[in-house]
Write a protein that binds this DNA or RNA. Structure first.
Lengths: 206, 206
DNA sequence: CAACTAACAATCAGGCTTGACTGTTTCTTT
DNA sequence: AAAGAAACAGTCAAGCCTGATTGTTAGTTG
């Protein structure tokens, strides 16, 4: 029964599934073993794709992992939009927006971003692949946020700066996770982060 | 003339200089080449120390790089204290404290911390070496900060949480540097970060 | 001053990764 | 249906890193 369906797969479909398998495998590998442990062979094995096929789609390691993060960013953006759209009308949208944002940073696959950002610092080729992708994503985030809170985003400067700091703080929290450092708990920090956001946006906490 | 001085160097002195050379070389190497590029051979070469001597002092790569970061933390703490002590009495201490803190994150060698934090996520041995060092340092930072601002630190919870967020934000800013991302400038973020701190501490900006 | 310990030097093998090369299968177009 | 293009598979050599092993020098203690 499946065979009838499978029998005719267009090239584009084949390409898409192969690429998706490689990108997911690359993310998984980055998370589990870090950038250094993410060898092209390992990714090909995990994806169940031959090394030749892999090299066909992604000629270098840098191209592969950068595309993987682009893939992840696309999912994160889509999921954020879906999550925000399904919010109860009576919900505290700002608070929910912050929480939803944090849930993007705590995704399992997000660790891959940290791996690549760190590696890109000393790897010019990777940086060349990654920088435009990261810049594009960040621009997307700002654009989406302004769309969600048009009233708050009136004075662009304050809104953008506050959002940038929220993103920075979340990046920092995500980066120092897993070391078991002392200090206030994540939930405490999140609460305060929200309060700060509300104040900076000139809107009292509801 | 130097020979008279050099002629008698105690073992402890020899050990100290060799270790210092190795730790500085390790930091430099982490900054320039990242964790993956920080091979024990490379560090030994840079330090002008034989591999055997290196292995004598630091039996494994993890022990070496963790000690290097501990070395860096010690310098950062000392420099912060010196910087704070030499502040003009009429200065805005809170503002200066934030700026001085940020100057610790923008040090050239600080990139080594990011390298190791990232690597530790997937390297259990490194994590085992690094976690206690990082925890100890963070505790130090909180202790010092409370000492500098005893009046603000009255209600421990608020003070600690705000400080934690400042550290997180600076960590995040440091981590995403060099990618050339769009968004508000660092100085703009710092200004807002200071304002946020002042508000969170219940003290209006002066 | 002699034994002993710590510091230092040099070499080596095993294991692993990268990207190139060549050959085969599957789809599309005419 | 046949030819051409794209996707896919397997193999390989070169290069590099890690940590172990063995040997030598400098300093200390009784």
């Amino acid at each position: 029964m499946q065979q009838a369906v499978r029998a005719r797969r267009t090239q584009a479909e084949r390409t898409a599934t192969t690429r998706a398998k490689l990108l997911d495998a690359a993310l998984e590998c980055l998370v589990e073993r870090g950038y250094a442990g993410t060898t092209t062979t390992e990714v090909a094995d995990r994806a169940g794709v031959s090394r030749g096929a892999q090299l066909h789609h992604f000629p270098t390691r840098a191209a592969l992992v950068a595309a993987a993060v682009e893939h992840l960013y696309a999912r994160m953006t889509a999921d954020y939009q879906a999550g925000f759209a399904s919010l109860s009308p009576r919900a505290d949208r700002l608070r929910a927006g912050v929480d939803l944002l944090w849930s993007m940073f705590t995704r399992r696959h997000f660790a891959a971003v940290g791996e690549l950002f760190t590696a890109a610092r000393t790897d010019a080729e990777l940086r060349a692949h990654l920088a435009p992708i990261a810049a594009h994503h960040e621009a997307n985030v700002f654009r989406l946020a302004r769309g969600y809170f048009p009233d708050l985003a009136r004075h662009d400067a304050r809104f953008d700066t506050a959002l940038a700091l929220i993103l920075d703080a979340m990046n920092g929290m995500a980066a120092t996770r897993g070391l078991g450092l002392p200090g206030p708990s994540e939930s405490t920090r999140l609460d305060t982060l929200y309060t700060i956001a509300a104040q900076a946006f000139g809107e009292p906490a509801t």
